[in-house]
Write a protein that binds this DNA or RNA. Structure first.
Length: 982
RNA sequence: GGGCCCGUAGCUCAGCUGGUUAGAGCGCGCGCUUGAUAAGCGUGAGGUCGAAAGUUCAAAUCUUUCCGGGCCCA
């Protein structure tokens, strides 16, 4: 064959170094990713990562535990993807970056599911032993941990999924119980009280989500509270309420400084009316007339204004003072008061309403100073009966065990009438909370709860400056780095203003507040004054570690733990309340970070949605400040929420939800990850069809560019790589650009600004590589001889570009980069075991970059000129042109020195001249000093490189080839002969 | 109602401490190529920078108000 060289039918494409690769153009990620995952599992990538990073400094991103009760939603995906990218990034930066996923397993929503199951089976929760019920909750949580674990891994998340942490692990339960005991020991845990929604019928506390609002007819009353000191003595402040039975619980009257009040006098009233002539009443101006009408007053007059300052200084008497309510009733200024209905004053019974409680507690310190007892009375028991704390009404019922109205309202109203304190009464049909189970009305009743002090000095604190949970937490916030910085402010504001932390719940599925309380003295065990605290703690810890917190609920637990440590067991009550789940998750640092030798405390980072300022960031901070004196994290990163495409919340009813499972099924996890990477996660982010499509397009471009590199690198022979000094300018320019992009990538990763990283890489790939460098170098790479320095230099640089880019992308697109890496180095290990490349500063060459910026200016003018020709159908391919470039600008001319502009502009030839351009030459307004005259070539085209050059046919044996191609072809033939000597 | 935050081309984002005709990628229209081909190259059209007022010689960039949206509270 070799001698028949003149054969024009030779398919020269076979003699070129065209890209060859099995790396498919279409990714097929939904099918491919699971296979890659299988490989990671079978090859134990996680173990290899740990092994590889042994001895490196640790970076610990501590996982905030999702709640184990359902499939992942898009918010989970966002959260885990961000965590995974940072974990992988740090590993490739040279840390031992170990990620241990966790789950939040206790709590109400899981209890509900189990109760629901019971109801469906006609069973009653209360008839089931607590330990058995807890076992069902545990099994339920276990199931969802498994489901979510698989879903997280499908996203590409790498971590210790074999050994995650669960808040319901026995050891975790033991540590959590130990943590609350620490608060008991340092004097921060105390028993207080708080109103909760209570169903008398079911004898249980209810959460907000367990009540539904239904129509209900309430008795309404207007009640006079007599003023007992100051100018207004003799007048009364009037309140209105729909719950007369709460009057015994009244401790204050609230008003608002935004409402105008006046002093009113009744001037005409029917005989025997409750309101009589001469009565002086303080009312909101806007409501005075309505109130007078309700009180059947015929005429009245407004005497004067009553200011907020005046009200604030007033003291009232309780309307039933003679029955045993002889305390002072203060006036409190509160934002919750309006003058839309009622009297403009709000009856405040801190044991019977959330707002009542809040305002009472907010004023507690000031009231103490006034000599007012701030203890909240327990006026109603769990059966709905009024108690000793409601003198005069003991045994009256608010709501009966059947859910009917009891006799308490009537008794209170009668007493008010007898005391002359009732101004008017009526009925009101309104929306009132009912239990969603029994459909019967519920009440707010004061119940004992466990709190942690925000403002009490720790036991053993120095006397000079305050050492309280609040001061510690605020200091810790100041010492934490926040991404974005606004998080600091937000968390600070919440900690600065929050009330004491309520940690108790009257539920079954959780970690018990594992303390005992002396019924008489209130002493806690363990506690600051209980001598054998440590022994007690050890007993409980040991039991919990081997049996779980169920040990607390087993028969004889009190004797088991406290036996021998106290004189009289009967004096001690075992606390049955469990801990709020926020305390559980707030303790993850204690049972996970502190106890796992492969992690460290404090964590380098906590990363969650911005809602967790109120949640996990908050509870973890308080928990750790209380037990360790500092935050459990050095930095906090927050992301926003995922919105639908129009920027509004996703909702089932609007049908604008996007599910991660669907995206993965349609496009793949790497697309979902790319979406996260191109979004500004610090703000709320949007997702939808069009947005995903945008990312799919970006991905395609990225993938195809990698594919071309892989194809070209098939011909790469590393041993033929030239030295840096031998590289042509164009190659050195690309290395310079790569180094520059490296700066952006490095800075982007350092700031966790991923959109900056992908943006820089993508732009580089599109503008510098695909549209310029690769396009220009195709001729050399495809056509030049194996021995050509230019070709070898280009291959060396493409190799460098590929390796660097793929590693940079690896944390973000773990599947695609693994796939590409595998094609480049078949049989080699995972790309995820690599480190980010360190690029030599030698590559930096600003002068070269400046020069080539000018070259590319000129190139733009050339391509612009050719575009005109193309549009006019005078040329097709740019190889059909041989433009004349008139360069009058000295700088540009200098820049072109030594540059093969034809090659750069991908024309067959080009003439650069200094002569003035003729009329009508092509110019660009923003490139001065360059004018281009296009010239169409009519010569013979080289059959191999398709260039129209003068030396086509100069090799007589190869008349259809240019000189270069003829030589390259001969070299190729020789190589073939060597390969196949037969 | 309160605290924190956001609103730049169809989409995702750049636009620093205020200073020439507001940028990029993708998408879209048109053309070329057919040796990255369900790819590649070129080129074009898209924005009163949420609205208004103010500060300033000068505002997308500072201030205020309003509109729209989000998280957390109430």
């Amino acid at each position: 064959m070799t001698e028949k060289t003149a054969d024009t039918s030779v398919d020269y494409s076979k003699t070129l170094y065209l890209p060859q690769t099995d790396f498919p153009m279409r990714a097929g990620l939904p099918d491919k990713e699971p296979k890659i995952l299988e490989r990671w599992t079978s090859e134990n990538l996680y173990g290899a990562l740990r092994e590889k990073a042994k001895g490196r400094p640790k970076f610990v991103l501590h996982d905030g535990p999702p709640y184990a009760n359902g499939h992942l939603h898009i918010g989970h995906a966002l959260n885990k993807i961000l965590k995974d990218v940072i974990t992988r990034q740090k590993q490739m930066e040279g840390f031992d970056s170990n990620y241990v996923p966790g789950w939040d397993c206790h709590g109400l929503p899981i209890e509900w599911k189990i109760e629901e199951k019971y109801r469906a089976a006609g069973k009653n929760k209360d008839e089931v032993p607590k330990v058995e019920f807890r076992a069902e909750c545990r099994a339920f949580a276990e199931h969802w941990v498994g489901v979510q674990s698989a879903e997280f891994q499908r996203l590409g998340v790498i971590g210790d999924f074999e050994r995650p942490y669960l808040t319901m692990d026995y050891e975790a339960e033991a540590v959590i119980a130990g943590e609350i005991q620490k608060f008991a020991l340092n004097g921060q845990l105390y028993r207080g009280s708080k109103p909760v929604m209570w169903s008398v019928v079911e004898k249980t506390a209810l959460a907000e989500a367990e009540v539904e609002y239904q129509d209900y007819t309430s008795d309404t009353i207007f009640v006079k509270f007599p003023v007992v000191d100051g100018d207004l003595v003799g007048a009364s402040v009037v309140i209105w309420t729909t719950t007369p039975w709460t009057i015994p619980g009244n401790r204050a009257v609230s008003f608002s400084n935004r409402i105008a009040y006046g002093l009113y006098e009744v001037t005409a009233s029917p005989e025997g009316n409750w309101a009589s002539v001469g009565d002086k009443l303080v009312l909101a101006d806007k409501l005075a007339e309505e109130v007078m009408k309700a009180a059947k007053v015929e005429d009245f007059t407004r005497l004067r204004d009553v200011t907020a300052a005046e009200l604030l200084a007033l003291t009232l008497a309780h309307p039933l003072a003679d029955l045993g309510y002889g305390f002072q009733v203060p006036l409190l200024d509160g934002d919750h008061v309006t003058d839309d209905s009622g009297t403009g004053f709000v009856h405040t019974a801190p044991g019977h309403g959330r707002e009542d409680f809040e305002i009472w507690m907010a004023n507690a310190r000031a009231l103490d100073l006034r000599g007012i007892d701030t203890a909240i009375p327990f006026t109603v028991d769990d059966g709905g009966f009024l108690t000793e704390d409601a003198p005069g009404f003991v045994g009256r019922t608010v709501i009966t065990s059947d859910g009917d109205k009891g006799d308490a309202n009537k008794a209170v109203i009668d007493a008010l009438v007898a005391a002359g304190a009732l101004l008017a009464r009526g009925r009101l049909k309104h929306q009132y909370p009912h239990s969603w189970r029994s459909k019967k009305p519920v009440i707010f009743r004061n119940t004992p709860q466990w709190f942690i002090h925000m403002d009490r000095d720790f036991v053993g604190a120095g006397k000079n400056e305050p050492d309280t949970l609040r001061t510690r937490a605020l200091k810790a916030i100041a010492e934490t780095t926040f991404y974005p910085p606004a998080g600091q402010n937000r968390l600070n504001g919440m900690i600065a203003n929050r009330p004491d932390w309520v940690v108790s719940r009257q539920r079954a599925w959780g970690v018990p507040i594992a303390v005992f309380r002396n019924a008489e003295t209130g002493q806690l065990a363990p506690g600051p004054t209980f001598a054998k605290s440590e022994e007690l703690r050890a007993r409980i810890f040991t039991a919990f570690v081997s049996e779980g917190a169920d040990a607390w609920y087993e028969e004889g637990a009190k004797e088991r733990f406290l036996g021998g440590l106290v004189e009289d067991l009967d004096q001690w009550d075992q606390v049955q309340d469990i801990l709020d789940v926020w305390f559980d998750s707030g303790s993850t640092h204690a049972f996970c970070l502190r106890r796992r030798p492969d992690l460290k405390w404090p964590a380098d980072m906590y990363l969650e949605g911005s809602d967790q300022h109120r949640g996990w960031f908050h509870s973890s901070l308080l928990e750790s400040c209380g037990t360790n004196g500092r935050a459990p994290y050095d930095s906090v990163l927050t992301h926003g929420f995922v919105m639908a495409e129009d920027g509004r919340k996703m909702s089932k009813s609007l049908g604008n939800q996007v599910f991660p499972q669907d995206v993965i099924k349609q496009s793949g996890a790497d697309i979902l990850r790319l979406w996260v990477m191109t979004s500004d996660y610090a703000d709320d982010l949007r997702i939808g069809k069009e947005i995903l499509q945008t990312n799919v397009e970006s991905y395609r471009k990225l993938r195809n560019t990698l594919r071309w590199m892989l194809g070209t690198l098939t011909h790469h022979e590393p041993e033929l790589d030239p030295e840096f000094a031998e590289l042509p300018e164009l190659e050195r320019l690309m290395l310079h650009r790569l180094r520059e992009v490296g700066d952006v990538v490095e800075a982007g990763y350092a700031a966790y600004d991923f959109k900056k990283v992908v943006g820089a890489i993508l732009n580089f790939m599109v503008i510098d590589l695909s549209a310029f460098y690769f396009d220009v170098r195709k001729d050399a790479l495809y056509c030049e001889a194996r021995s050509s320095v230019k070709r070898r230099a280009a291959l060396a640089v493409v190799d460098q570009l590929f390796g660097t880019i793929v590693k940079w992308l690896a944390p973000m697109l773990p599947f695609t980069t693994e796939e590409a890496w595998g094609h480049r180095f078949p049989g080699a290990g995972s790309i995820h075991l690599e480190l980010f490349p360190v690029l030599p500063d030698l590559w930096r060459d600003e002068a070269l970059a400046a020069k080539w910026a000018k070259v590319r200016e000129v190139r733009r003018v050339v391509t612009g000129a050719l575009e005109i020709e193309r549009a006019a159908k005078r040329i097709g391919s740019s190889l059909e042109a041989a433009p004349i470039v008139h360069v009058s600008d000295a700088d540009l001319a200098a820049a072109l020195d030594g540059v093969d502009l034809a090659e750069v502009a991908i024309t067959s030839s080009i003439s650069v001249v200094a002569t003035p351009a003729p009329e009508g030459a092509f110019t660009l307004p923003d490139v001065a000093g360059v004018a281009v005259v296009p010239v169409k070539l009519t010569g013979k085209r080289c059959a191999r490189s398709w260039r129209i050059v003068a030396d086509v046919g100069s090799d007589p044996e190869l008349p259809d080839l240019s000189a270069r191609d003829a030589a390259a072809y001969r070299e190729w033939l020789a190589g073939q002969a060597e390969k196949a000597p037969a």
